[in-house]
Design a protein around this nucleic acid. Sequence first.
DNA 1: CGGATTTGTTGTCCACGTCAACAATATGCC
DNA 2: GGCATATTGTTGACGTGGACAACAAATCCG
Lengths: 158, 158
Amino acid sequence: MRSSKRAAKLAIVKPAETGPAVDLDDLNNRLGYFVRRVQVWVFQDFIRRLSGVDLSPAQFSVLVVIGANAGLSQSALAATLGIERARLVRLLHGLEQRALTQRLADADDGRRHALHLTRDGRKLLARAKALAAEHEAALKQKLGPERYRMMFEAARDF
Amino acid sequence: MRSSKRAAKLAIVKPAETGPAVDLDDLNNRLGYFVRRVQVWVFQDFIRRLSGVDLSPAQFSVLVVIGANAGLSQSALAATLGIERARLVRLLHGLEQRALTQRLADADDGRRHALHLTRDGRKLLARAKALAAEHEAALKQKLGPERYRMMFEAARDF
DNA sequence: CGGATTTGTTGTCCACGTCAACAATATGCC
DNA sequence: GGCATATTGTTGACGTGGACAACAAATCCG
């Protein structure tokens, strides 16, 4: 039984190691299942590529929208990004501690905070955008150009 | 100003209430941003529609794969779904407490557990699959048939 | 003016990903 | 056979993020 050991080793070693193809059954008909898998890959790649600027996807999106809409309120920003106001408060707290954003008093409405980027915030955002573009290129390569284009067209403006 | 109240109501009521169009800037070029939005909608709708059977997307996927691959191991299941073994242990704990799944001894390997659905598990899974199909139809309507088809084709087998 | 609403905030709870450690079992090699 | 190594399932701990409730300050509106 042990005699042909070396030959056996040459034969298979580790053929695929991904198992003998498990049946996904109904999951094959669930778009959300595959969307989630894409989303997981996207987040992992994004976080890895932006580790240099230490920004999560959520933090990046906050900086981008503030950068393009200086002075907007937290409620408007939260609604835009589809996150809870309570969640945004904590995100801004972290960004403000790093001196990337600031909350100024709104002239028209005493309840509102007018959100702005600091000089450091703008500089970091520029670097982050470049890294995000690299991530986007990686995603395009991962999906293939045709699939990438299709998916973008289908998901845009959702 | 209040005199033509009724007419005004007919006019706009709540035009959009989504604000004056905030600029997403770079996010418009991030496929991951839109994928995440789709994913959030999917999970919310899925959870709501399956609240009757009290199954999360993760629990549903576990039941589906066990149902189609009776006897597989926890490691194989975790690898298939792309979740941690540690996480799967807790998921199975909850499902087993509800008598939906069971871990039997694997004849070939004393370390492995052979996963199976119980009779209750099969019955609940059948109901869950029907609800999941309704969710899928809702998603198709939300996206529109063409976009749905495109997205499915692009995301499949990821 | 006074009730209702909006805005930002805090606290709490729970689901989930991640990682380290561990015991039991199996495998590979001498 | 015996021993190092790997796999499998499990537990504990930590951090993140979403969901809710409650609240004070400010605003709006009749």
